[in-house]
Nucleic acid binder design. Sequence first.
DNA 1: CCCCCAAGTTAATGAGCGTTAACTCCAGCA
DNA 2: TGCTGGAGTTAACGCTCATTAACTTGGGGG
Lengths: 222, 222
Amino acid sequence: MGSMSNVPATAALPRRDQIRKEAARLFAARGFLGVGVDEIGKAVGISGPGLYRHFAGKDAMLADLLVGISERLLEEGRRRAGDRTGDDAGAQGVLDALISGHVDFALDDRDLITLHDRELLHLKEEDRRRVRRLQRGYLELWVEVVRQALPALAGPDEEPVARAAVHAVFGLLNSTPHSLGPNVAQGEWAGLPRDSMAALLHSLAQGAFAAAARSAGKPGAA
Amino acid sequence: MGSMSNVPATAALPRRDQIRKEAARLFAARGFLGVGVDEIGKAVGISGPGLYRHFAGKDAMLADLLVGISERLLEEGRRRAGDRTGDDAGAQGVLDALISGHVDFALDDRDLITLHDRELLHLKEEDRRRVRRLQRGYLELWVEVVRQALPALAGPDEEPVARAAVHAVFGLLNSTPHSLGPNVAQGEWAGLPRDSMAALLHSLAQGAFAAAARSAGKPGAA
DNA sequence: CCCCCAAGTTAATGAGCGTTAACTCCAGCA
DNA sequence: TGCTGGAGTTAACGCTCATTAACTTGGGGG
C-alpha cells in the first residue's frame, strides 16, 4: 500500500476524495455530459487521463457520487428513525428528525443533492438500479414515518397520497440549493443566515405534510 | 408563404410544433447533450440535418422551448393576478389562482417544466439572460401576491423569507412531474387521478405558505 | 543500493456529433 | 409549360472527447 498516515495538510484530502469533490462541483455546475475529464483533472492539479489511476472511468465517478449520497441519506435516515420507532407520540418527533437530517444534507451537500436527482439517467443500467433501490428505500422510510405521524394519512386509500406528498416535499427541500445557488458569502443563503434557512425549510415541509393530512379524503378539485 | 389552411389532420401539427414536442420529450428524457439531432429528426419522420430548415440549430431548439414556457408561465400568471389586484380580501384568492395555474402547467406540460429548470445552463449567454429575466418576473409576481395574501410576510425583513418560500414551493410543484414520471395510464398519476393530484399539490403549496407565515419572525433553529 | 510500483505524463486512437455543402424533388403559379 | 423555392436527402468536414498505450519518475522496503 501507499503511505499510511501523516497527510501533509496542504492536501488534506486523499486524491480520491479530492476528485470526488471537484467532480461533484463541476457536474453540478455544467452537467455530467458538459464536463470533460481534462477539466476534472485540471481542477485537482493533475491532467487528463491521470484520473484513470483512481477511477475506472468518467461513468464510475458519477456512479460513486450518486451511490454515495444515496447510501448516506438512507443510512442517516434509518439512524434517525431507528432511535424510537413504533411508539405513537414520538412519531412527529421522528418525522422532525428526518426533516432536519434532509435539510442538513440539502444545505451542506448542495452539489450532491443536485446531482442525485438530475444525473441519474446518465448511469449505466446496473448502477442506476442500485441508486434507485436506495432512493426507494429512503422514500419508503419517510412514507412509513409520515403515516405514523399523521393518522389521516394512515389508511390504505391514503397511501398514494402520502407517497406523493413525500415526493413533493423532497422536491421542496432539494430545490433550494439548486435555485438559490451561487451566493457564497459566509453562511448567507439568499439573504438569510443558514440556520434561518434551515428553520424555514423545516417549517415549509411540516406545513406541507399537515396540509396533506388536512385535505386527505376530500374529493374537491381546485 | 406555404399552404395557408387545411392541415391534413394526419399531421395535425405544423412541422415546427411537431419538432418542438418531440425535442422536449427527448431532452426531458435524456438531457440536452444526450440527444443527437439525428434522433430528433427520426422522431418527427425526417432525418438529421433536415431540421435546419426549421431551426437555426440545436441550441435554437432548446432556446425556443425554454423561452416559450417561461413566457407562457409569466403571461398566464399575470393574467390570473391581474383579474383583481390591490384589494385585500381577494389576495388569498389570487394566490390560489396562481397555484392552480402552475399546477396545471406542471401536470400538463411535464416535459417543459422539467427542462425549464434543468437545462438552463446549456443556453448561450444571451438566451439564458432572456429566460432568467422572465423567470425572475414570474417569481416577483408570486412574491408580491404571497406578501399581500399573508400579512406576516409583508414586512421588509420578511422579504427574503417570502422569496425563499416561493422558490421552495416552485420546487415542490415542479418536482412531481419529474419524480412521478413515466406512468402513462390514462389520467393516473402514481395511483391518483389527475384532479386528486392537482388538489393535493394545491394543498401542499398552501400549507407550505401558511407555515412560512406562521414561523416568520421566530429565531429558533431546528 | 537497487528495484518496483504507485502515480503521472504526453501522444494516439477512434467514435460521436453538430453543422455545412451539394444535390433532388415536387407543388403551385404565371 | 416551365420555373421557382420550400423541404429533404446523403456525404463530408471538423471538432470534441473518453479511453488506451507507451513512457517517465520518485520514494520506500528488501
